[in-house]
Amino acid sequence: MKRVKRRYLALEWDFEGFIGENEFMGALWGSVARLFGENGASLANLVLIDYSGGSKMATIRANLVAVDMVRAAVASVTCVSQKAIAINVVAASGTVKGLSRRLPKLRK
């Protein structure tokens, strides 16, 4: 069987207050499902890898075939718990190690 290729995306958000990881992932899943339907959402296969509510950053994993869909869905999220939010993908990599190597450079 062919190995499934994946991408790890580092996300950063602007939000007044704190959001829990369940709410956050709910918003992402909701956005993917709204834009691409349940079939599209199943292709994306989103998984939360790392979450830091304090620094407003998270790492998610998605299938490579659906990475464009995930990026579009991430950009389309406008609110969580009826409060405005703006989520941006700050880095993408094929491995968690590669992603963590890129993140400190972005912080400079």
């Binding site: 869909m69 990026r71 579009a72 950009a75 406008t78 939010i85 703006a86």
Partner: peptide, 14 residues
């Protein structure tokens, strides 16, 4: 809150 980074805008064009 509606501002997105350039790659976010490009992703929406998908």
């Amino acid at each position: 809150m509606l501002l997105r980074n350039p790659r976010g805008l490009a992703a929406l064009a998908f």
